[in-house]
């Protein structure tokens, strides 16, 4: 690597520096737009005691779920989990700590973390179990709770295309949490389907500027579908 060139050539290099007990932010919604190979690399490395921040936790044999069997995740901060048996078992037995966070609050926690904002007030979760232990305040007669932002030691991100400088373009709903996670990692690692030369991505079309990105690697992806639904006669 030299200058602004962020491209690395191996997954080992991509995840270098990840160590036990770190906090990792992961992009993806369900199995859509997840950094498949970066997750595989964490599994291979065997890093333990991780706090994972991700909307979901994958399924038994794909996505973040593959980090469960060897107990690599200590805690997960997510909005919707439990699509896998091992997750359920570890959650029920108390081996895995789960902090359920509303989806919009989770997205905003990452966005705020990346933007240098330590906390924000939101009406989401007021009067619910989410509000327990949090500061409450009224603005214009409405009740809000104070939510703290999140930054990660690492952010693992999946984008569609990158240039060598780490400028990113995402594809369709695979964007989801990825641009937010990208801003909030002390080290942000992005895997993409295609790497192009600087200047090949139109500046107006770039979703995430390379300033947030530390490492870029090109991968191949399975892109597993969780709920394969097709149209038969008519209707959505």
């Amino acid at each position: 690597m030299a200058g602004f060139d962020k491209v690395v050539s191996s997954y080992e290099e991509a995840m270098a520096g990840l160590s036990d007990n770190m906090t990792v932010l992961a992009g993806g919604f369900g199995l859509c737009g997840i950094p498949e190979n970066l997750i595989n690399e964490i599994k291979r490395k065997g890093t333990k005691g991780l706090t994972l921040v991700s909307n979901n936790c994958g399924v038994d044999d794909f996505g973040l779920g593959i980090l469960l069997p060897k107990r690599q995740i200590k805690k997960i901060i997510a909005s919707y989990v439990g699509e896998n048996a091992e997750f359920e078992r570890q959650m029920m037995s108390g081996e895995l700590e789960v902090e359920l966070t509303p989806q919009g609050t989770l997205a905003e926690k990452m966005r705020a973390g990346g933007a240098g904002i330590p906390a924000f007030f939101t009406a989401t979760g007021y009067g619910t179990p989410v509000a327990i232990g949090k500061e409450e305040r009224q603005f214009k007669g409405r009740d809000y709770i104070l939510e703290e932002s999140i930054v990660g030691d690492f952010a693992i991100v999946k984008a569609w295309k990158a240039d060598r400088f780490g400028n990113l373009i995402f594809r369709k709903t695979a964007r989801n949490f990825n641009p937010l996670a990208a801003t909030a990692g002390k080290i942000t690692v992005v895997e993409v389907e295609e790497i192009v030369e600087p200047g090949e991505l139109a500046p107006d079309q770039i979703h995430t500027a390379g300033i947030y990105v530390d490492r870029v690697i090109q991968g191949t992806f399975e892109k597993r579908i969780e709920q394969r639904t097709v149209r038969t006669t008519k209707g959505a």
Binding site: G104, W160, T173, P179, L180, Q227, V230
Partner: peptide, 25 residues
């Protein structure tokens, strides 16, 4: 079918004319 295009129920969907996509925040 496109694995990169799903709804909040994680079902594969399509986009209507005039659709837009954006991040979760």
């Amino acid at each position: 079918i496109d694995a990169d295009l799903i709804n909040a129920g994680k079902q594969t969907v399509t986009m209507a004319t005039g659709a837009s996509v954006f991040d979760s925040a």
